Simulated assay, not measured.
Amino acid sequence: MAAVQEVLAAAVSDHRAVLDGLGEPTSAGFDVLLHSPALTIFAAHWTPQMNLLPHNHEMAALIGIYTGREDNILWRDEPEGLRAHSAACLFEGDVVALPVDAIHSVSNPLQRFTGGIHIYDGDFFATERSQWNPETLAREPSDGDTIRAMFARENERRAGQCGGPA
């Protein structure tokens, strides 16, 4: 993954070229670029002011931002419950590596879309993982279908705010 991180960092360092190649995000979701049992690569799009609750991936991940900003809170699952332990703001051109055991929540604080290239060393969509309720921090099951449903709800929320399609 270290070599892949170097390639991703080089790519998003010219974030305008990535944006030109992938297009401006217009809705919450994923543009899947590669999907196999060993590797998943997609462009993720966060709507303005979108929030994703704490979740894990159960695999190593690389995230490179090519437009907008992604704010992360990093969490630890401790015996007394989930606890925030650090934060990181990713701007255009930034790359972060998340280890297999990472738990994070994600926010787009901007009034415009954020886009990032996400690379996972496994099948992101078929892997069972966990998410934590944002109010109670109770652990809940999650998988690709759960994540897709969150993005669909976000597009519905945005359509309601804008008075039309997302």
Rank of each mutant, 00 (worst) to 15 (best):
Q5N: 06
E6H: 09
L8K: 00
A10L: 07
A11Y: 04
V12R: 01
D14C: 01
H15G: 08
H15V: 02
R16Q: 14
R16K: 13
A17Q: 12
A17T: 14
A17C: 03
V18H: 13
D20K: 11
G23K: 02
E24N: 06
T26D: 13
S27A: 11
A28H: 05
A28G: 14
G29D: 02
G29P: 01
V32S: 06
L33Q: 15
H35I: 12
S36I: 04
P37T: 04
T40M: 01
A43C: 08
A44K: 09
H45W: 01
T47C: 08
P48M: 08
Q49W: 05
L53V: 14
H55M: 07
H55D: 06
H57M: 02
H57G: 00
H57R: 12
H57E: 05
A61G: 15
A61S: 13
L62N: 09
G64N: 04
I65H: 07
Y66V: 00
T67P: 12
T67Y: 04
G68D: 09
E70G: 05
I73M: 09
W75H: 09
R76I: 06
G81C: 06
L82V: 02
L82S: 11
R83Y: 01
R83S: 13
S86Y: 07
A87K: 14
A88N: 11
C89A: 15
C89T: 15
F91Y: 13
E92F: 00
E92P: 11
G93A: 02
D94M: 04
V95K: 13
L98M: 14
A102H: 11
H104L: 06
V106G: 02
V106R: 01
N108D: 00
N108L: 02
P109G: 01
L110K: 03
L110W: 08
R112C: 10
T114V: 04
G116A: 15
I119E: 08
G122R: 05
G122D: 04
G122A: 15
A126M: 11
A126W: 03
A126Q: 07
R129M: 06
S130N: 10
W132T: 02
P134Y: 01
T136Y: 08
R139F: 04
E140V: 01
P141D: 06
P141K: 00
P141R: 05
D143S: 01
G144E: 04
G144C: 02
F151M: 12
A152F: 04
N155L: 00
E156W: 02
E156V: 12
R158A: 09
A159H: 03
A159V: 03
A159N: 12
G160R: 15
C162F: 06
G163N: 00
G164H: 12
G164A: 11
G164V: 09
P165N: 11
